[in-house]
Structures are given as structure tokens and as C-alpha cells.
Computed example of a mutant assay.
Amino acid sequence: MRPEPGDLLRIDGRASVQFAGDRALTFRVVSVCDRPTYAGWVWLTGYVLNRRGNATTKREIYVQLAGLRRVTSTPAASRSRVTRPYASRNDQGDGRAARDRSGLRARADAR
């Protein structure tokens, strides 16, 4: 199997002894290096993913192609928080109060 950018892989002892046992990791491939290496080995650049599917560390790893395994189910990615401007009571849903900040002024005047 030749990995491509975007692939999600399970890297464990089959890919390299340095990832055996509890040192196994889930890896999102960013790039595959075209440098000449030993036959059957490849340099991969990508991100280590935690159990939630969030990237924790960017790494470059040297692994055996024969030991790479695609992950069939992706880790559950956590939802990113969306920040929104303060909505006041006089905001009618058209965003006018948020744009002109009248809601913020009204709140400050109430103090």
C-alpha cells in the first residue's frame, strides 16, 4: 500500500519496531517524501491524532510500506466552538444589533 496525503493510518509495530505496543499511533498523512530509501520503506509527514481525532503533534516518520494499515473508522472529531457576537434583546435576527453594536451599548448603559 502506498499512502497518499489525507490517508488515515494506524502505525504500529508492523510498520516499525519503534511503534510497537503502547507506542502505536493514529496518523493523518500530509505528505509522502520522494527521497530514495531502502526498498519497501518510506518517509511520511503528518499529524498524530488523539482518541477524539484532534491533531496533537506534527511528525515525520520512517516506516515499512508493508506494515501500514488504513483506519476504517475515523476517530470522532470534536466540534469546534463557534463564537458569535453578543445578541441583545433588540436584535431581530437580521444581525443589525450585532453589526452596529447597539446591543452592547444598551447593556453598558444598564449598569
Rank of each mutant, 00 (worst) to 15 (best):
R2C: 10
P3L: 13
P5D: 05
G6D: 10
G6I: 07
D7Q: 01
I11P: 00
D12V: 01
D12H: 03
A15C: 08
S16D: 15
S16A: 15
V17L: 11
Q18F: 06
A20N: 03
D22H: 11
R23G: 01
R23V: 06
A24P: 07
L25A: 03
L25F: 01
T26L: 07
T26F: 10
T26S: 10
F27H: 02
V29F: 09
V30L: 09
V30T: 03
V30A: 03
S31N: 10
V32Q: 07
V32I: 12
C33Y: 09
D34M: 05
R35C: 12
P36R: 14
P36E: 11
P36M: 06
A39E: 15
A39T: 13
W41T: 01
W41L: 09
W41M: 13
W41P: 02
V42S: 06
V42F: 13
W43M: 09
W43A: 05
L44F: 11
T45P: 09
T45L: 09
G46S: 02
G46P: 03
V48N: 08
V48D: 14
N50T: 04
R51I: 07
R52W: 09
G53E: 05
G53H: 02
G53K: 11
N54F: 15
A55F: 01
R59M: 10
E60N: 14
Y62G: 00
Y62R: 00
V63D: 02
A66R: 02
L68I: 03
R69Q: 15
S73I: 00
P75C: 04
P75I: 02
A77W: 03
S78C: 04
S78L: 09
S80Y: 05
V82P: 02
V82H: 04
T83F: 15
T83A: 10
P85T: 00
P85R: 07
Y86I: 04
Y86R: 08
Y86K: 06
A87I: 11
S88C: 11
D91R: 01
D91A: 08
Q92N: 11
D94K: 00
G95M: 01
G95R: 05
A98K: 07
A98H: 03
D100Q: 06
R101K: 06
R101L: 13
G103N: 03
L104H: 13
R105A: 05
A106G: 05
A108S: 09
A110H: 13
A110Y: 11
